[in-house]
Design a protein around this nucleic acid. Structure first.
Length: 423
RNA sequence: GGAGAGAUGCCUGAGUGGCCGAAAGGAACAGUUUGCUAAACUGUCGUACUGGCAACGGUACCGAGGGUUCGAAUCCCUCUCUCUCCGCCA
């Protein structure tokens, strides 16, 4: 959530930056300021009146104690008058505050200076390409054929049990998920991240804090009976660990990692996009999250990108790093790097990680602050990234490591799996 | 699911209608002093909005929301959560 004071002091800059994110309703900036003006004014008159009421109430007590009943009664009448004026003020204030909230949550985060202009995924900037170019056997096929051939994942039965996009992993396919999860978590904790296993459902307050509500309401599964949301990423519960807290500066940086299944309705997806494991409603992911000093977040983002990159290198996959353009970035992010691995069999890049700096956008929403050396309270910055999302890594490994007879495993996974080959 | 108890500041915990934004102790921080890995003493020590260059004020907040009252941490109602006992159960 953007801060009104920032918009007030940097109106033109904010508009310029919002435009980069292809946020079109720029008049909303002026609107928010004028609503806030109203709010301040109401607040001032309310406080003023309330202050009189408080003083008079105290006086009434004093008069009663002295036994001057008449004076007390007179004061009571006066207070009653003020209170009548207070009522409409209170109502108006609630109304204006709701209006302010309703408008301000519509603003996406402002993009970082490094964010490239552009609207579509094609305009994302390729920062670098790395890893090993896969060499496939002559009759190589895509993962959806391989997982069928080796009976690793059964989509049909998953669809029977739940619905399409809910894969059922079987045998070595299931074990491979477990092994990948374990490897990723070990990799992250070795780098200093603390492991968490969070709830997989969150309440509305948590979903709001990280920006899923109200922006992505339709993308989450909602358990209406209890008003819980199935998490679309571990980012939601784990970042919320520090909702409504004031940390000490020495507590920073906070580094967390968590495995979780992710549930996404993915309304509106279709075609090749959703084939096989490319896009599913439930998938596994290991996430890394950091809460850091605002001055450090730029450097930490680079560090997290390097971390994910190292992980991909260790898996022997070819990858590229993209700096997302303004139009393709997430709502709450100030800057995002996407990692894509190359699927030679599909001849396309698959997104496997997204590393973002949210700056104070989430922390302001969820009131995650810290006390700096001068004793001042500041909002921390939050960042997160996938390290890594499993299905597409699964797909890429299965495809890129396929041989004439079986599927090999990246060296780092062999000890975990207890074999040189997946099948 | 049933019954009961509770929710106060970083923690423990007092406070049952005005003197309470809140005692006391602990922790933390700063200083003084003595000194062998620490003690004693002194001070500071909630958050948000708002006015002011500042000093310093105003308002709100004692789980959340509503109500009673001139006045609520304190009384009433609803909800949430925690604990204990019972039931059920991976």
């Amino acid at each position: 959530m953007l801060q009104v004071n920032f918009l007030r002091q940097n109106t033109e800059l904010a508009k310029k930056k919002l435009a980069i994110k292809h946020f079109t309703n720029l008049n909303l900036v002026d609107e928010v300021i004028s609503i806030d003006d109203q709010r301040k004014q109401l607040q001032a008159s309310f406080d003023d009146l309330q202050s009189k009421v408080n003083a008079a109430s105290k006086e009434i007590g004093a008069q009663m104690a002295k036994g001057d009943k008449d004076k007390a009664e007179a004061l009571k009448n006066e207070v009653a008058d003020w209170k009548k004026q207070l009522e409409p003020l209170k109502e108006k204030m609630a109304e204006v505050e709701a209006q302010l909230q309703q408008v301000i949550v519509q603003f996406p985060n402002l993009p970082h200076d490094m964010v490239p202009l552009g609207k579509t995924p094609e305009e994302n900037e390729v920062v670098r390409v790395g890893g090993v170019t896969p060499v496939l056997p002559p009759n190589a096929v895509a993962h959806w054929d391989l997982i069928k051939k080796y009976n690793l994942v059964d989509f049909e039965t998953g669809a029977k049990i739940t619905g399409s996009g809910f894969p059922l992993y079987i045998g070595k396919g299931a074990k491979f998920q477990r092994v990948l999860t374990q490897y990723f978590l070990d990799f992250n904790t070795a780098a200093g991240y603390t492991e968490y296993l969070p709830p997989f459902m969150v309440n509305a307050a948590s979903a709001f804090a990280t920006g899923q509500l109200p922006d992505k309401e339709g993308q989450m599964y909602h358990a209406t009976e209890d008003d819980f949301y199935l998490i679309p990423t571990a980012e939601v519960p784990v970042t919320n660990v520090f909702r409504d807290t004031v940390l000490k500066e020495a507590d920073l940086p906070i580094q967390m990692t968590a495995y979780s299944p992710c549930f996404r309705r993915e309304a509106g997806s279709f075609g090749k996009e959703v084939r096989g494991l490319n896009r599913v409603h439930q998938f596994e992911k290991v996430e890394i999250i950091q809460i850091v000093h605002p001055e450090k977040s730029d450097a930490v983002l680079e560090e997290m990108v390097a971390h994910v990159e190292k992980l991909l290198v260790s898996l022997g996959l070819q990858y590229r790093v993209l700096r997302l353009c303004g139009g393709d970035m997430g709502f709450a992010s100030a800057i995002t790097y996407d990692f894509e691995v190359y699927s030679a069999a599909q001849e396309r890049w698959l997104e496997v990680s997204s590393v973002s700096n949210f700056q104070a956008y989430q922390t302001y929403r969820m009131k995650c602050r810290f006390k700096d050396a001068d004793g001042k309270i500041q909002f921390a910055h939050s960042l997160n990234g996938s390290s890594l999302a499993l299905p597409r890594i699964f797909a890429a490994i299965v495809e890129n490591y396929q041989t004439e007879n079986g599927i090999a495993l990246p060296e780092v996974l062999q000890a975990y799996f207890g074999s040189t080959h997946l099948v």
